[in-house]
Design a protein around this nucleic acid. Structure first.
Lengths: 248, 248
DNA sequence: CGCGGTGTTGAAGGCATTCAATTGTTGTGG
DNA sequence: CCACAACAATTGAATGCCTTCAACACCGCG
């Protein structure tokens, strides 16, 4: 029932999909899933590849089966901002719109389950539960976007970097727990380059690097390698992120 | 059929509501509107008053009939960020959530059409068209939030202020048009104080003031009084906002 | 080994903030 | 009607945080 099993045998069979319950498809009953089965297409994308572009027609939507996708917007002079990070089992793409308003690019190796837009939108009409589930997901994305606006507008560089780590530590499965309390020790992988982190936080590469160093010196995080971190105390990381204990 | 007529006579009758067609209720058929009629309650709010709070239970949702509402988030040390501005006929409040994730405060005098949460959510189940309309609205809010993230993360103070003016000039009804091309001359009112603008843009009051002065000196805008502006050339304002002609 | 990509560190400069003073506006009561 | 207080907005000077520019370290790979 895990990823490997699915990848080995029944790739396109929704019933065996690893992320189905978490994804929007979880709204469908077993016999309704058959509808989906007929239109989906699995696809693998390499890191750095563009998945959706502002410039081409947005002809498909997708579930993220595995991997991390960054949604970016770029100003005409090249300044870039990442406006969303998506992890499995998030839904990729904007329903009901001729164009996406951003670029979607694979940050890591990504596995997608793609739906042709026209047919997926038909399903949304037929199955209100499916639309409802997508709606709830969109509401959570909006919550997250607004939370991020506070970070972009009002936090210092150090708080931004720490907040980013808090977000990742929470999203990531907690791999190892040394202490008694699982919350006290968390390890997480960094799926993005320093340049991507900078584009997420509205900073430069150099500032991100410097702030990571600062957090390291303060022992708020330990840097195992440039892509993996260890958090001795989630409370201290949250404090560095400008989150007081009430809002954790 | 205008505001005054409605206010004078049939305040709570949805059929005569000035914003009905633009608001989510527009999804309902005439006989379904009656459902709404039974649960709505009109309410007027004074500038500065809190409408929704993070701390109290979120027991109602509302349509904005007139006025401007700011959605704010505050860090524990008092730093504040406005994460959304809402104008009539926007929908206020988060469906399907025990708590709102922000404060909603009246920026101007505001007229609301309030629905008890529990009963409104029942209607969403009964009438998929209503939920669909709310969904589309939420998608547009997410688009706007992401656009704003680019502003907060990557634009300079001058671009931020100019972008804010572009947004207002578009949202506002164009009151007067001196030139041949209606797009070339636009006037708009500023519904917010300088402090609010600062909280919108992730700046300080002083910086906002300075940048407005700069735009004035460059003749990008004319300041009629501190709350109303005239834009001689929308193109020049957009240029100052960092929007090139393709993305207007 | 050298090369490109990624990440770190240092020094100098600039943009927005902070602190402070002044002006303008609004509404209230004498 | 005017004086006055309270608030909103502007302007100036100095500070500081982040950026910019530059050099170097690290790593995987042909």
């Amino acid at each position: 029932m895990d990823d490997r099993y699915v990848a080995g045998g029944l790739i396109s069979r929704c019933e065996h999909c690893a992320v189905r319950n978490g994804a929007v498809c979880g709204a469908l009953k077993p016999d309704e899933i058959e509808h989906l089965n007929r239109i989906v297409r699995r696809r693998t994308v390499k890191p750095g590849e563009t998945i959706l572009s502002d410039e081409e027609p947005a002809d498909f939507l997708a579930n993220i089966v595995s991997g991390v996708i960054k949604l970016t917007k770029t100003l005409s002079d090249g300044r870039q901002q990442i406006v969303g990070l998506q992890f499995a089992p998030d839904f990729l793409g904007r329903a009901y719109g001729a164009s996406h308003r951003y670029f979607a690019e694979a940050a890591t190796e990504v596995e997608l389950c793609c739906f042709p837009r026209a047919e997926f939108e038909k399903l949304l009409v037929i199955y209100p539960d499916l639309e409802h589930r997508l709606f709830e997901r969109t509401l959570r994305e909006l919550d997250a976007a607004r939370e991020w606006m506070v970070l972009l507008g009002r936090k210092t560089a150090e708080e931004k970097v720490a907040s980013f780590m808090v977000m990742l530590a929470r999203r990531s499965a907690i791999i190892g727990c040394g202490g008694k309390d699982p919350q006290d020790v968390a390890r997480f992988m960094m799926p993005l380059t320093r340049a991507d982190i900078a584009d997420c936080l509205g900073l430069t590469i150099e500032t991100v690097s410097r702030q990571i160093t600062r957090l390291k010196v303060q022992s708020v995080v330990r840097v195992l390698d440039s892509r993996s971190f260890l958090v001795p105390s989630m409370d201290r990381l949250c404090a560095a992120a400008g989150l007081d204990s009430t809002e954790i």
